[in-house]
Design a protein around this nucleic acid. Structure first.
Length: 369
DNA sequence: TCTGGGGTCCTAGGACCC
DNA sequence: TCTGGGGTCCTAGGACCC
């Protein structure tokens, strides 16, 4: 067994309906109306999906991930807005700066959420962290004009579940007995790490809620899901999670992909395909250069009109961030794919990354060899 | 009404080396 | 003539998350 660790106070902070809220902040006249954010404009003809929607839109059954055309059908009177990532990233930076000022041990979990280890924050012992959490919520509101929800718990898994219990503008402190009372009745899909596939398989076993999962024998879960995932499922249902709050991690890959407005013919649209691959390679190269990283594995992703997806990759001798090298390697990958359907999506990825200066150090012996 | 774009991690098989 | 494991790297696909 693992060494027992001293109790921690972990927070999960989640912005409320983030993209929709950012849009409402700069268009206050839309307040109270259903607002749906997603795609690049013209939702009725778009192949995009809903990225976020306001709570008013949710009342019509609109959900994130839903095709925009479905959202139009469910809520034709909604205000549809294209995604403006640059603006969301700007507000996200304001949020994170405000949070870090009060709780420096922060793990970035994307544009609108973070984990915090509050264990060492002064004053945390007073009321299990609720006062500190209120301060953080206030600081986020001062910096962005937006509300967030915070969950406080002894670990990340429970903090994440807790932050959802009282949305929007919520603050939930998990205490003794709350696992059984508030978490066990939830459907297994609410647990971070259980997705649609695992939930479906669990349902087939008669397991629908977290409590039912907790009551399933560990050995049974391992038999059904494998040693690693089976044991994790059992631990998760019992609220056990020893993961640290990680303040920095090296990036593993960078990529860029695009879905076409109409599916491309592999021969007749060859010029367009080449143009897009060139563009995607240049974008990934620029992204790597900006971050001062290079990578050795170049990958091509292709989705056909039937939504089947294939990938090919190729590892080269010398890590690169050069657009021409990436493009050449992508073309090499393309020759290994049987192009017998129309193409819906193309993507370019560079992985096995390392910082540019480390790659240079590793190469230096070559200069003398 | 067909299903975005950015990621991470895991698995499994084959190559290759010791 | 038949038969080892372990370790690492590479590739392809898939589950999952925001």
């Amino acid at each position: 067994m693992d060494e027992p660790t001293p109790p921690r106070t972990i927070a999960h902070l989640d912005m409320d309906a983030f993209y929709a809220s950012v849009e409402l902040a700069r268009r206050p006249e839309l307040k109270g109306r259903p607002v749906i954010v997603g795609g690049r404009g013209d939702p009725a003809r778009s192949r995009g999906v809903v990225t976020t929607c306001s709570y008013e839109a949710r009342a019509f059954g609109v959900r994130s991930g839903m095709p925009l055309r479905t959202a139009v059908a469910r809520c034709p009177d909604a205000v549809f807005l294209p995604t403006d990532f640059d603006e969301y990233k700007r507000v996200s930076r304001l949020m994170k700066r405000a949070v870090r000022g009060l709780a420096p041990v922060m793990e970035d979990r994307g544009i609108d959420e973070v984990y915090l280890d509050l264990t060492e924050v002064p004053g945390i012992e007073v009321d299990a962290g609720a006062a500190v959490a209120r301060e953080i919520k206030h600081a986020v509101f001062e910096a962005t004009g937006l509300t967030c929800s915070i969950g406080l718990a002894p670990n990340k898994l429970l903090a994440k579940l807790a932050s959802e219990l009282d949305k929007p503008d919520g603050l939930t402190v998990m205490q003794a007995g709350d696992l059984e009372r508030r978490i066990w009745p939830l459907p297994v899909l609410k647990v971070n790490g259980i997705g649609p596939r695992a939930a479906q398989k669990l349902q087939a076993l008669g397991v629908n809620t977290v409590g039912e999962l907790a009551r399933t024998a560990r050995a049974e879960l391992i038999a059904q899901f494998g040693q690693h995932y089976g044991a994790w499922l059992h631990d998760a249902a019992h609220g056990r999670d020893a993961r640290e709050v990680v303040t920095f991690s090296e990036p593993r890959s960078r990529s860029s992909e695009t879905t076409f407005a109409r599916d491309l013919h592999p021969r007749r649209d060859r010029a367009e395909i080449d143009r897009v691959l060139r563009e995607l390679s240049a974008r990934v190269a620029a992204d790597l250069a900006r971050r001062a990283y290079v990578g050795r594995t170049i990958g091509l992703k292709l989705r056909f009109d039937d939504f089947s997806t294939v990938t090919r990759d190729c590892t080269i001798d010398r890590a690169t961030a050069d657009a021409a090298t990436i493009l050449d390697t992508v073309h090499e990958c393309l020759t290994r794919i049987d192009l017998r359907r129309r193409i819906r999506l193309l993507g370019v990825r560079v992985s096995t990354l390392c910082p540019r200066h480390e790659a240079q150090l590793a190469r230096e012996p070559d200069l003398f060899g």
